[in-house]
Amino acid sequence: MGYQLAREAFSEIFESIKKKYDIWAPVRKEGEGTFSEIDVIRYDKIEDLDEIEWEKRSDYSFKESLLKIRETIFYFTEDETIVPKEQEKDLLIFLRSCEMHALKRLDEMYLKSGKEDFYYARMRKKAKFILMGCKESCETGFCVSMGTNKSENYDAYLKLKNNRVCLDVSDEELKKYFKGMPEAEVLPEFVQANLEKVELPKHLSKESAKLPIWEEYGARCIGCGRCNFVCPTCTCFTMQDIFYKDNEKAGERRRVWASCQVDKYDTIAGGHEFRTKKADKVRFKVLHKIYHYEKRFGYPMCVGCGRCDNVCPEYISYSNLINRLSKEEKRNEE
């Protein structure tokens, strides 16, 4: 059901919505980028629609609104462990289409792949999602190639048009806030073409793991892990036990974001490390995104948001790597 409201009328409804929901959206952080004169766009709680960055894709994904970078999973003493209480308010999160598809990947891994993850599940059950349209393609995104440029499974769609707020609301609970408001047809805006185009390899062979491009890209990679941290579908984490200074037998266990590209991430008991070379780490990440995950779940893990291309300090283009991999496979089939 669609609505068109004046900004003043919507502001009153928005105040009511905030009583029940913490609202997260991409926000421009002035001077908080790599250097003091560079801005960064990342997710944060908002109080007004004017705080939202509507035009540019966020540098960091929505993931940190559902999965904290550092999350205490329990407190411990000599005698007991205590799980932190869940937050009181529900969540309302603004997403773009590619991120709606990324949410599907997170659900697959945290809720359906083995036993349900307790911490993700309780946050996920409290969350609803508002789709943000994309008038134009971002510079490095390739969502059209990945089939993630369109999405229908949103709870609401919202856009600003002059001094009006246009909404398409599908969630019954959210519809209650707009009862009696003037109805109108509102259609989401979706990107139809990207500047960047990617062709996924259709038939990867075992020989693809031995291709020289892995050594080439591995020689450039510095193992910083930034590509993983901005990715909306990466889920790697590590554990930290924090002991309090005033009582060394008490503390908390935290789940902390981690990266498969960082040295020692995959070190196990006895000091064995599965992938010591940067080339092996790059190969593992790429094939997991476009091959291993798809083999298990039926669709690629990557959603084509293009953030990894933007954030890499060595200018490694993930999309270019995929296209080169496709060309190598075609050459091997000839």
Rank of each mutant, 00 (worst) to 15 (best):
residue 4 Q to T: 11
residue 9 A to P: 01
residue 11 S to D: 11
residue 14 F to Q: 05
residue 17 I to Q: 07
residue 18 K to E: 08
residue 19 K to W: 01
residue 26 P to G: 13
residue 32 E to M: 12
residue 36 S to G: 05
residue 42 R to T: 14
residue 47 E to Q: 14
residue 48 D to P: 00
residue 49 L to T: 09
residue 50 D to Y: 04
residue 50 D to I: 13
residue 54 W to K: 09
residue 64 E to R: 14
residue 66 L to C: 11
residue 69 I to S: 12
residue 69 I to T: 15
residue 69 I to D: 10
residue 72 T to G: 00
residue 74 F to C: 05
residue 75 Y to C: 06
residue 78 E to R: 14
residue 79 D to Y: 15
residue 80 E to T: 11
residue 80 E to W: 01
residue 82 I to F: 14
residue 82 I to P: 01
residue 86 E to S: 15
residue 87 Q to V: 13
residue 94 F to W: 08
residue 96 R to G: 06
residue 99 E to R: 02
residue 104 K to L: 06
residue 104 K to D: 06
residue 105 R to P: 00
residue 108 E to T: 07
residue 124 R to G: 03
residue 137 S to Q: 02
residue 137 S to N: 05
residue 138 C to R: 10
residue 143 C to R: 01
residue 145 S to K: 11
residue 146 M to L: 15
residue 147 G to H: 01
residue 155 D to C: 10
residue 155 D to Q: 06
residue 157 Y to W: 09
residue 158 L to D: 08
residue 159 K to N: 10
residue 165 V to Q: 04
residue 166 C to E: 11
residue 178 F to T: 04
residue 181 M to D: 05
residue 184 A to F: 06
residue 189 E to K: 15
residue 190 F to N: 14
residue 192 Q to G: 12
residue 198 V to Y: 06
residue 213 I to W: 05
residue 218 G to R: 03
residue 222 I to N: 10
residue 224 C to M: 12
residue 225 G to Y: 04
residue 230 V to F: 00
residue 232 P to C: 06
residue 235 T to L: 04
residue 238 T to L: 04
residue 239 M to N: 04
residue 240 Q to D: 02
residue 244 Y to A: 08
residue 251 G to N: 08
residue 252 E to I: 00
residue 253 R to M: 11
residue 262 V to E: 13
residue 269 A to C: 08
residue 270 G to W: 07
residue 278 K to H: 15
residue 281 K to L: 14
residue 282 V to P: 00
residue 284 F to Y: 15
residue 287 L to P: 00
residue 288 H to A: 14
residue 293 Y to N: 03
residue 301 M to Y: 00
residue 301 M to P: 00
residue 305 C to A: 10
residue 307 R to H: 11
residue 309 D to F: 04
residue 313 P to Q: 06
residue 320 N to K: 13
residue 321 L to H: 02
residue 323 N to H: 03
residue 324 R to E: 03
residue 324 R to I: 07
residue 329 E to Y: 02
residue 330 K to V: 02
residue 333 E to I: 03
residue 334 E to T: 00
residue 334 E to A: 11
